[in-house]
Write a protein that binds this DNA or RNA. Structure first.
Lengths: 203, 203
DNA sequence: GCGGCGCCATGACAACTGTCATCCCGCCCC
DNA sequence: GGGGCGGGATGACAGTTGTCATGGCGCCGC
């Protein structure tokens, strides 16, 4: 029986090395490639042809979500597992749409990573159980595109008038959208609204 | 020659396990305790008496910075290494003030962790070289403790009056502190001020 | 073809926020 | 013992923000 070949993509070098060490402790797994950003990872997948790619989401050059879509398109034999800090239903949905077979949180016990690799290799899907439940129960993104644009800028500290200029709107309109977003999110003000939206993965 | 005993504190279980696997690959190191928050870590240090404690900063219950100070006070034989994502001069300064002997970024190659543990064990200091240079050049934290408390709450989206009640101050006083903080940070409003302070590691 | 929805706008009002001047207290340091 | 500094406060003023009512435009679906 030959070992399962795993590629790893993670932007923090020390975490990358540590995850590799973790996987190498399993006799039936071997880390055949490592990458520190999405572009590197795509190249690594092309040359090393791993059975499974384990990737972070937030990376320079190319996010793990885009990477997952690219890998599915050009190397369908490589299964993708997203490994991330973020328990955001929005991310999970986008990951599944991008063809990822696994979505695991860095919060979970270390043993689950190897287990997930084996299961995905067998063709199963592995979704973090808590997150899967939450994603089903959780409300979909209530924000319109405009509201998102404006709320994001407000969350960065820009004032109503600055946002108005930036988006070629009137100040009043900006206030209207913010007011709408605040009430949709049940927040008390723009700052809290931005915080909530960020946390839910809607920004 | 007996192995160097290391305790690990990190809130993300998978990273905790991975770092442990990484350290265990070194023949002269052994992980004698693991903790997922500051309080657990303090208890673990008390019972396991490690030579070195490697800890994250942002953890529930007690931050790594507070933890470092507590360990120095109650277990001076245990050396502390801060291992974090954040290249913030403010964090570094506070870490050193808290008695940490090492400050390492998760960005660095995995091999540096074991090297740092050995050096700290020998009584040396290990500071991330890039960060050390930057810290020297960078401006010191201009915020007073009150300003920090208030700005932090404002950054969470709380209103002036809520903050006033929470800290038993008058609304006007809260506004005064915020105004001071905003001008010290060269921001246009409380939101931007909070963003800047966070980014610099002053919050 | 009408209703609903996203998008954009105006105007008005109340509430919140940012600034400034000016004050009191206590502490530490020279 | 006077000055500086952090903490705390008041009052006044202008500017920003949040809410509401109301209207117009275009697109989609029934």
């Amino acid at each position: 029986m030959s070992a399962i070949r795993v590629a790893l993509a993670e932007d923090q070098a020390m975490i990358l090395g540590a995850l590799a060490a973790l996987l190498e402790t399993e006799a039936d797994l071997t880390v055949c490639a490592r990458a520190r950003n999405g572009r590197e990872a795509l190249a690594a997948v092309a040359s090393a042809r791993p059975d499974v790619l384990v990737t972070d989401i937030e990376m320079p050059e190319m996010t793990g979500l885009t990477l997952a879509a690219e890998v599915r398109a050009s190397h369908p034999d490589t299964q993708v597992i997203i490994l991330t800090t973020f328990a955001r239903p929005g991310y999970l949905r986008r990951a599944l749409e991008a063809g990822a077979k696994g979505y695991l949180l860095k919060d979970r016990p270390a043993a689950e990573l190897a287990a997930a690799v084996r299961r995905v290799r067998r063709g199963e899907r592995v979704i973090d159980p808590e997150l899967a439940a939450e994603a089903w129960a959780s409300d979909p993104d209530p924000l319109t595109e405009r509201e998102r644009q404006i709320l994001w800028r407000a969350g960065e500290g820009r004032s109503g008038s600055e946002i108005a200029v930036e988006l070629s709107l009137s100040e009043g309109t900006v206030r209207n959208y913010l007011s709408e977003a605040i009430s949709k999110l049940g927040a008390a003000n723009r700052i809290e609204a931005a915080r909530i939206a960020r946390q839910k993965g809607w920004l």
